[in-house]
Design a protein around this nucleic acid. Structure first.
Lengths: 248, 248
DNA sequence: TTCATATTCTCAATTTTTGAGAATATAAGC
DNA sequence: GCTTATATTCTCAAAAATTGAGAATATGAA
């Protein structure tokens, strides 16, 4: 095993169910001798990617929290959209959770969440959680705006072909509604956000209880999301011009 | 440059002021040939540690957000203390920001923050932000509980000697108050949290406007923080026993 | 102290990385 | 379509780093 992947293999051992590991356990899990595992852990330790917990057990280190903060401070979508996200949740007027989600590398990932104070349900999403690529309004709103070449790369030719018509319709509508596709009893409403210059394809979505989606209210939320998403696009373009306009 | 550090050197280029880089810029900044830089970036890309932004620019990738989520879900201090942190802010009854801070690797780092709705000031702290080691109530409450050997390793012999008496007093008091040590006009109040079994040394602190710290109120907040910190220690020990008690 | 376990060290064989430049993509303009 | 400029990958022998087994040291508790 070579280069970076040898380190990442260790880091990927850590999980919610197994948050701490001894070096012996790592060596075992990866099938490498202990001396090698110790060297690897020592390197990770010195970079802050793991820390010693106690009694020879190790856990993920502070570097991840710091780098995450950096992404929070610099992500153009968050800068343009976090404030609006909270406003949308407030204006929705019913119990709901708002999500900002983004195609990120090869994943569709939630990068910001905001629950209304009266939201009694807890949707399974939050910052840092990868979402299923082809299910749910949030992801579909994103896939619908993907150039077909990239879509194929992401989900494969067959899956892309199977979804082509549905996505074309969503693209025309500029909006996506899904009922119970992910959580039973919950519905997702999502509007796409695209900024070519930043290479950004994302969506703003709202998760609400299905039974609250009467006709008129659904229409109101649709308009709310679409206009909020458009406002985010405007801010993204503005931020980008500022960057280019400023002296290098 | 060898092994992991060669990759970290690239990642550490990214900052709030320079959130995106071209490969040529990286190669320049690090003094390596472009072909080498391209190979390094390709590896980082495939692990999700960087992503392509647009037009040959790269930014930090989704892996950091995912790993951060994992630390949020598994950090024993956060599991034991996040709820209490919010209660403390609520019960404080004045505009304030509550912080959970932890000795993390070689840094003192804030891992959770909660502002009261009426807090009009914005303290310079938040999750993922390293704090100055030897300044501010938050850090001092932690240093006071550090075994002197580790203290020396952390801040050096001279600095450790210079602080020895002050820290001994803080240790006896079980509490730390600092006025304007970090932000002019703000005061920090902090109580230590220690859990040997988890190898955890931390503090719970409250940032308030200095002028609001009348005598009686200061005393009330002191007691609030100390009892909340103790409750966290209790929960930490409970969580630890559950872990040990459960079948492997 | 003594034991048990955690961690680092040693060294030759093996594998990876490096750098310079050539060879390919890729995208924009004509 | 072609042309140009730039981005990215590839090639290959020399240089450097990693590997694995085990010995040598810490470290901490009894």
């Amino acid at each position: 095993m070579a280069g970076l992947s040898r380190y990442m293999a260790v880091l990927r051992l850590f999980s919610e169910g197994a948050p701490t590991w001894t070096v012996a356990e790592m060596a075992d899990a990866l099938g490498v001798p202990q001396s090698t595992a110790y060297r690897t852990v020592r390197d990770l330790l010195s970079e802050g990617l793991v820390e010693m917990s106690s009694e020879a057990r190790y856990r993920l280190g502070p570097a991840f929290i710091e780098f995450d903060r950096l992404t929070r401070l610099t992500d153009p979508l968050l800068l343009a959209g976090n404030e609006i996200l909270h406003e949308v949740v407030k204006e929705a007027g019913i119990p709901c959770v708002g999500l900002l989600t983004r195609l990120y590398g090869r994943e569709v990932m939630c990068i910001a969440d905001a629950a209304s104070p009266d939201a009694s349900f807890s949707p399974s999403y939050e910052r840092g959680r990868p979402m299923p690529l082809t299910q749910g309004a949030t992801s579909k709103a994103i896939l619908a705006r993907l150039p077909s070449k990239r879509l194929v790369k992401l989900i494969g030719r067959e899956a892309a072909d199977a979804m082509r018509e549905e996505l074309a319709a969503l693209r025309r509508a500029g909006f996506c509604l899904g009922r119970g596709e992910i959580d039973e009893g919950l519905a997702g409403l999502a509007a796409p956000i695209v900024c070519e210059a930043e290479g950004l394809i994302a969506s703003l979505s709202l998760v609400v209880e299905s039974h609250r989606l009467a006709g008129a209210r659904e229409e109101r939320l649709r308009l709310l999301l679409i206009s909020a998403a458009q406002e985010m696009e405007v801010r993204l373009r503005a931020a980008e011009h500022i960057k280019e306009g400023s002296p290098a």
